[in-house]
């Protein structure tokens, strides 16, 4: 994972609630065995509508997306995060995210930032004309108009994002603890070993 500390630029003012993973990337695009190239399927159904924000030249290449409540609900497909990254999006700001999506976003260095609805409403307004800046270190979202919104983030996730930590590598440092747990498990719950009929 690449380290990430700041995101600055234009933002797609999407604003809708319950943007589900099928909207972010329809299942037909999930046939790939690669993580890349999914941007062309991103938000396909929304992009089929004339005048959509994604194809508006005003927002071309915007690194930020602003959405409504419950962003990323539905499927566990990490392809949703991959597709957004492929489209050039590195941060989403919404009042809430589905648990699985926010985890997937985090694993891919895609910031999923929670701000209350009034802040979202203000940012949707600003996004129509001006850039938005996100600073992970200070946990703030700011605009050229002196708006300043602070957001919460799990300290561990913040650390991993700022430093581009390989989470598997980190966990493998605990291999001894995992082995000890497995030995205890074999004694305490030996029936857990699957039988082979």
């Amino acid at each position: 994972m690449q380290p990430i500390s700041q995101v600055e630029g234009r933002a797609y003012p999407l604003g809708l609630k319950n943007i589900d993973t099928d909207i972010i990337i329809p299942a037909v695009w999930l046939k790939t065995i690669s993580r890349t190239g999914l941007g062309k399927g991103a938000f396909e159904t929304l992009r089929a509508v004339e005048g959509n924000v994604f194809d508006n030249p005003e927002y071309n290449g915007a690194p930020i997306l602003i959405a409504g409540d419950n962003f990323g609900c539905g499927s566990s497909r990490e392809h949703a995060a991959w597709a957004m990254a492929d489209l050039g999006i590195t941060a989403v700001i919404a009042p809430s995210f589905s648990d699985i999506f926010s985890g997937n976003a985090f694993k891919n260095g895609l910031l999923a930032i929670v701000l209350p609805q009034p802040a979202i409403d203000r940012l949707l307004e600003v996004a129509k004309t001006d850039p938005i800046r996100i600073d992970l270190e200070t946990q703030t979202v700011t605009t050229p108009f002196q708006d300043r919104f602070e957001f919460e983030i799990d300290p561990f996730r913040k650390h991993c994002l700022l430093n581009g930590v390989d989470e598997i590598g980190l966990t493998l440092n605990s291999s001894d603890a995992i082995s000890a747990y497995e030995r205890k498990l074999a004694t305490d719950r030996p029936w857990l070993a699957p039988t082979m009929g």
Binding site: E78, H79, A81, G103, N104, I168, S175
Partner: peptide
């Protein structure tokens, strides 16, 4: 449910 990065994490570390 988990994403693919977590699938990889579970495969590697259980």
């Amino acid at each position: 449910g988990i994403g693919t990065s977590e699938v990889e994490h579970v495969l590697a570390t259980q």
